[in-house]
Nucleic acid binder design. Sequence first.
RNA 1: GCGCCCGUAGCUCAGCCGGAUAGAGCGUCGGCCUCCGGAGCCGAAGGUCAGAGGUUCGAAUCCUCUCGGGCGCGCCA
Length: 591
Amino acid sequence: MNIFAAYKDIVLAELDALTAEGLLPAGLDTGRVTVEPPRDPSHGDMATNAAMVLAKPAGQKPRDLAAALAARLERAAGVTEASVAGPGFINLRLLPAVWLTCLRDCLRAGPAYGDSRIGDRRRVNVEFVSANPTGPMHVGHARGAVVGDALAALLEKAGFRVAREYYINDAGAQVDALARAAHARYLQALGRLGEADIAAMLARKELEYGGDYLVPVGERLAAEFGDAYVDEPEATWLAPVRERAVAMMLDAIKDDLAALGVAFDVFTSERGLVQAGRVDATLAFLEAQDLIYTGVLEPPKGKTPEDWEPRPQTLFRATRFGDDVDRPVRKSDGSWTYFAGDIAYHRDKVERGFSDLINVFGADHGGYVKRLQAVVRAVSDGHAHLDVKLCQLVSLLDRGEPVKMSKRAGTFVTLRDVVNRVGKDVVRFIMLTRKNDAALEFDFAKVTEQSRDNPVWYVQYAHARACSVLRHAETLFPGRDLSPAGLADAAVEVLEAPEERDLVRLLASWPRLVEGAAEAHEPHRVPYFLGEVAAAFHGLWTKGKDDAELRFLVPDDPARSLARLALVQGVATVIASGLQIIGVEPVRELR
RNA sequence: GCGCCCGUAGCUCAGCCGGAUAGAGCGUCGGCCUCCGGAGCCGAAGGUCAGAGGUUCGAAUCCUCUCGGGCGCGCCA
């Protein structure tokens, strides 16, 4: 339970009471009322801005309204003091029992602590990765994969029902190019082409993809097709080779994603949508609403392509839904553009019952956001909403030096390389240590070192340390119930030190953080919060060094020790709960 | 030229659906190891929140403009 939300409900109830008494006009908008931790902890446990927000519409002075509200709040359950401060804040002090109850809730809930119902089981569609099935995944894809997966997990924790989706771009020129490259490797596998021939074809731009990863693909094609497509024209082999090559690439991508701990619920094929007539149907649907027309676009100002010439095109009226220009849906050869397929795909999502859509894209797709949002509005009659999370570049470093990557030189760093080198947990955590729209540096040396510099290690260390204390306690207090549930029954009232109280409050704010991060679609808040918990815990741990009274384990005072163990277990539980969202395994020991 | 993102301490970054004295790490300086894991902790110094206007009781946060950086800009996906 989010204890701050609970007290907000109390504030709202007291506001209603003031209204009933005639002290407030009816029908006030309380949407901007908040109850949150005060900036300065010395102000109290919680603060509300209710009086300041409502003063003007109520026609009252903020401090007068605050005084009236505070008088009521002072009598509310768990409140020991409600004071008016500054321009009209009401600071609340709560009984310690309020926070200690949160700690008990945490211990009883385990890693499920922080689960929320704000999602109300509404369905959300999260599309991410959607890498072209033309080769292995590289590090750039890893960020989108982690952001999408963690966002999905965060939304699930907040009570949404989430579908993780991958859109397979298997209908365009890219996969034809893949098929040609795979066919060349097929000929190579049959001894009809040598490595030099392939190099020459690449140099002549006859082939687009030259990576070694296609060698085994060629071998498998040779095994499956024999020499059936050796002397045939492209028209004969393109489709079957393409189909098999795409399937193999997709399998490889799924393997890479599995290594990163990412799995999808739904894969949607662009080609499948085209072949099922969904693109035609969608465009007809839009045409019926006069949202498709033939027109001539203006050249982009300041950057007119050299071969620009005005020509009539089939356009979608994206400008009617907030886009900057209308967008072409048909190429000059009559086939659909990529965008047309995406219109059909997003209509498909809406028709499957999703009105909350999230797409995780690379930053280079920024120019695509408005048109997609326009599409979603158009195909849903304005009911569905699309949020796009753009992920900025990841730059790979090693001890501060850029890792040189070049496709040509073969020093391209794949997702698999990175996972093999540092482990999936490190990759996942680090990918969330920046908000998605800020560039991220990934330093191989730094992310694996054991120091305060390395946030993954720092958080894991806190968890391991907590587990270590609990292990030690088992030998010190044999026969005691030190399980989380048992510790929940400990007399935690003896947690009186300010540092202990602060840590309890921090743990109690975890459910609030989950809700805020989920509403904002910002999974990066989770690792930051875990860093705060870890710092508070390490600090308290070290205080026990200076002041033996503060040590977690006091051999001749089992009652105090058990209470502190409850706190230690709370730390471990919240860290585990947060790591679960990120998809990182909490370690019980560091090695 | 237009659109989107970014600009916060020396460095790397949180904070941004408006709230009180703008936070953290690194670095610098000064401290803390008989100990439940010192792989750590504590303290100090360090700021025109890029700049200028505006809205507001209140702006790092919202709006406008300027400057600086990144990305994108008709049949690539």
